[in-house]
Simulated assay, not measured.
Amino acid sequence: MKLQALALHNFRNYDDVTVAFGDGVNVLLGENAQGKTNLLEAIYFLALARNHRTSSDRDLINWQAETAQVKGRVQKASGNTPLELDLSKHGKRAKVNHLEQAKLSRYVGQLNVILFAPEDLSLVKGAPQIRRRFMDMEFGQMSQKYLYNLSQYRTILKQRNKYLKELGAKQQKDLVLLDVLSDQLANYGAQIMFQRITFLKQLETWAAQIHQEISQQRETLTFHYATSIADDALVDTAHIYEALKAGYAAKRDKELFQRTTLLGPHRDDLKFIVNDKDVASFGSQGQQRTTALSVKLAEIDLMHEQTGEYPVLLLDDVLSELDDMRQTHLLTAIQDKVQTFLTTTSLSGVAQKLIHQPKIFTINNGQISSESDDGDEDASADAADDETNGI
């Protein structure tokens, strides 16, 4: 899978930009606050129809404009696919092959991306919601069923929490509707949890191998899906469903008192275990970074295994956070394997030696100029328009 071209209109600090990319490593070079991360953000948004930095889509629109647009052309084994997202104060519209999609779940998955930024190092030691979001974003790209179940679960969870608040304020409590909502929530919750467990087992296989390579066979990485459901109930959706139902019944009084749902995948966590110890609590900073890197690289292989296509890799200033050894492993692993977009203020040292024939883009105040790896300018605005014809 490759992103051949991208066109932006009023997106962040880009007024009107059209750019064609290389199939290998695309280096986005420039000083801070010039738009490098914004360009990666546009690619991420084109893929998932949501922003990784803010929950407000309005923040993506240039402050001087009322609407914004992101368009791209994706090359896959099955052919080229134009994608388009239109943003306004009324919401967003998604198009595939110029046809508007009624549901975003039918749009997501047309372009698969993996983002690795400095804040992703907190995947290991950060709050549980970071790891839940990681699972939802990555697994959602690989399975429309997962996205659908997640959407339904969130809708019912919101309804159930609202009803718990209403019940908590009443003397007489009608629990019939609560039982109905509990049953629905357990149904979708069980499917989400079983899908997570299935994907995590597959991801663990890839990550464990990569972690051993980086640690030179000194460390073993395993995953543990942490939930309040007993481990022996995690064998299939039916057993998880029954365990969730029993859990809601057992916690009913506590939930009515606290007026919120205390059980389910929205409360679960993912633990990374290195040499039989929770690396978040007992691991060194080096072990935590190796774990985060192993998981991100494993995602590449898992997405390929699940979809038949390698994803696009977005590296946002991550090289500056890795030592030479981990830089070397990262750049060696992706070389000639996945299309990569890498932001940096300076391409030097290890990176310069390891990246073969990069396509370099200099970004300055929302303007993009392209040059080949020998420094010759090779892309005018007209040439870019020719290459991006069709998006």
Rank of each mutant, 00 (worst) to 15 (best):
V235H: 07
N275E: 10
E255T: 04
K92W: 03
E387F: 12
S369P: 00
A33Q: 10
L40M: 08
Q195G: 12
L178F: 09
K2G: 00
P128E: 13
D16K: 10
L99K: 04
T344I: 03
L203N: 02
K337M: 02
E242F: 01
Q101V: 06
R131M: 11
Q209V: 11
I130P: 02
R132V: 12
H98L: 00
D323Q: 00
R93H: 04
Q4I: 09
V279Q: 10
D236G: 06
A102E: 10
M193I: 12
A233P: 00
A207F: 10
K353Y: 06
L99T: 07
F134N: 05
Y248S: 11
L178D: 04
L322G: 01
G264H: 07
G375E: 13
V176H: 07
L115R: 10
G91R: 07
K170T: 08
Q101I: 03
E387G: 01
F139N: 01
D269I: 05
K337N: 02
E255Y: 11
G286P: 02
S369W: 01
Y188W: 02
M325Q: 15
N275H: 06
L200A: 11
D57M: 08
I368V: 15
I300Q: 03
G109Y: 04
L29V: 11
E387T: 04
K173E: 13
R58S: 07
V176W: 02
V108D: 04
T227K: 00
A7D: 05
E119G: 00
V274F: 10
A208F: 06
L28I: 15
K71N: 04
S78R: 11
I300T: 09
D382Y: 09
Q191G: 01
L115A: 12
D179T: 13
T290Q: 09
G35T: 03
N62Q: 15
T81I: 15
